[in-house]
């Protein structure tokens, strides 16, 4: 395969990854890693470097569109980024001592979990009575809907913060956005309506990934020949996804993606056990 063919096929693949990542709120990285390793037989370390860039591009691209609509809770994102950035730095440090096959198995497990999280029942309700800590930290907010402005309050801030730390570690270790863990923290633990939790998660992914990205750049994980098609493709997909999400009900698409992601996850775990990475 020539460099030109490789680049063009990868741009197309990355475009789809960005689209899926944006529609599901999981980030482009989760799709980029299996695409590069399983389809293009690229070493998982190069894939992690590219996935980090994809996560940042995906997050920043989609977040700029969501912020415009006023759904993202910026204060909440900033507060929880303390946990995710600390975790990400720790994860990037552990990564050096972790064998690539272990990383692949762990990645598969996170992917399975992400697929399950996408299929679960979403929290549609806004909480009327929140915790005291949420009040003190000014985390409660409101967001616009077709029926008007909806006010919401937060529960269990400490629990959400802890899960965010774990999401950060996974992000630093695997080079992904850990969108599913972030949504779990906000949606299930802190009881935030899912529209706010998915967009705020997407907004946070960029900062979390940036916390470990320079470490990976200096370790030589980022190859320009892979980064160039991945970044451009994912960006295109993320913009399309952000536009689509405000217009269509993506629930059917989510189910299809989840089934596909489950198969990919099993293959990653299987190949990891077979020491193919």
């Amino acid at each position: 395969m020539s460099i030109l063919t490789f680049t063009l096929v990868l741009i197309l693949g990355a475009y789809l990854a960005g689209l899926v990542g944006s529609l599901t709120g999981l980030g482009g990285g989760v799709v980029i890693i299996p695409l590069l390793t399983l389809v293009f037989h690229v070493d998982i370390r190069y894939a992690i470097g590219a996935a980090l860039l994809a996560s940042i591009a995906n997050s920043s691209g989609a977040a700029s569109a969501y912020i415009k609509e006023g759904i993202t809770n910026i204060r909440l994102g900033m507060f929880l980024e303390i946990a995710t950035t600390l975790g990400a730095v720790g994860g990037a440090l552990i990564a050096v001592y972790t064998p690539t096959n272990t990383i692949a198995i762990l990645f598969g497990a996170v992917l399975l979990f992400s697929a399950a999280m996408t299929l679960r029942k979403k929290n549609q309700n806004a909480l009327n009575k929140g915790s005291r800590l949420a009040e003190i930290l000014k985390l409660n907010g409101s967001y616009p809907t077709k029926e008007g402005k909806v006010e919401y309050k937060l529960a269990n801030v400490t629990g959400g913060f802890s899960i965010m730390g774990l999401a950060g570690i996974m992000s630093g270790l695997l080079g992904i956005g850990s969108g599913a863990l972030k949504v779990l923290a906000m949606d299930t633990t802190m009881k935030i309506p899912f529209k706010v939790s998915t967009t705020t998660s997407n907004f946070m992914i960029g900062v979390t990934a940036a916390a470990s990205a320079v470490v990976y750049l200096q370790r030589g994980y980022m190859d320009p020949g892979i980064a160039f098609p991945v970044v451009l493709g994912v960006l295109g997909g993320a913009f399309t996804g952000a536009k689509l999400l405000t217009r269509i009900d993506a629930s059917t698409l989510r189910i299809i993606f989840c089934i596909a992601i489950t198969f990919i996850a099993i293959e990653m775990i299987y190949n990891g056990i077979q020491h193919k990475f």
Partner: peptide, 17 residues
């Protein structure tokens, strides 16, 4: 040049902070 673009991309969320 590609690597510089990647570096700028990494800097974007940091600039946001």
């Amino acid at each position: 040049i590609i690597q510089f673009g990647a570096l700028l991309l990494i800097m974007t969320p940091i600039m946001r902070i």
